[in-house]
Amino acid sequence: MNRTLARSLPVAAIGVAILLPMFMGDYPLQVARNIMLYMALAVTWDMLLRSGQISFGIAGLFGLGSYASILAVVRGGMPGWLSIPFAGLFAGLAAFLIGFLILRLRHTYFSIVTLALGEIFRIIIHNMHDFSGGPEGIVVQQGIIFGGASRNLYWLTLAGLAVALLASYWFEKSKVRFALTAIRNNEISAKSSGVNIFRWLLLAFVVTSAIQGMMGGIFVMSYGFASPETVFSADFTLLPLAMALLGGIHSTVGPILGGLLLGLVSEWLKLQIPYGHLVVYGVMIVVVILFMPQGLLGLARKTMRAAGRNRK
């Protein structure tokens, strides 16, 4: 019975997610879009974490994809819809090149460099005035994709989330899981078992960066606007991280669960205390790391195991 439930739950969730716009007004749809955007970022952050690498560069790649998309449209005349996969490709290619430099680094060094990377992208965009629009940002003159119809924008973001989920599922079900887990647990053992560590890290870094860039494309195409302060905002790094930690790391379900909860809570908080939501994320990260490092999923597993034991 448990198994049929486990099978039907995702199907039901997908059904609800697709049909939601039929029953919702513009404001809730926009909230839902936001949450899905963060979920996708949270899942991709977790995918790289499965190899043991902690990235603080989500906002960097998200912002890079955002600008790749909007500049392709505004300066290159690319159709809006096409600029979204283009943003993914661009961020993926950038990650591929950067990967050769930074994927030899580990631990804090890797994390700090990914953080710096975002900062570098932001400063470059900031200073390329004539091309990028500089600090004031840049607007899509041709009008927003889908004429800004909120249902369509919702479905577009949902499609982005679906890409992230499919990639995460692939990471979980294929030999990618073996490679990344082996690397995370013990690189020396992994090498001795024939794992080409650099190659698998590069794969994880490129795939997750491409999806983060693509989400950036979806974001700017939905609003028709990008500025360094909005698309490179620390929110895009901290929130996904807090969501994944809260839900439970090293899984697909965890970041989704955490994203749903934290997304709803933060939306509510934003209305109560402006900027209060940021404090909540900070506190959340600390509390989760200190008291439930396995997140809600881990807590659920523990409770189920305890319940199972009591029944016996």
Binding site: T181, A182, R184, N185
Partner: peptide, 8 residues
């Protein structure tokens, strides 16, 4: 010094 992969 044994190195099992503890998450597998």
């Amino acid at each position: 010094l044994i190195h099992p992969l503890e998450n597998l």
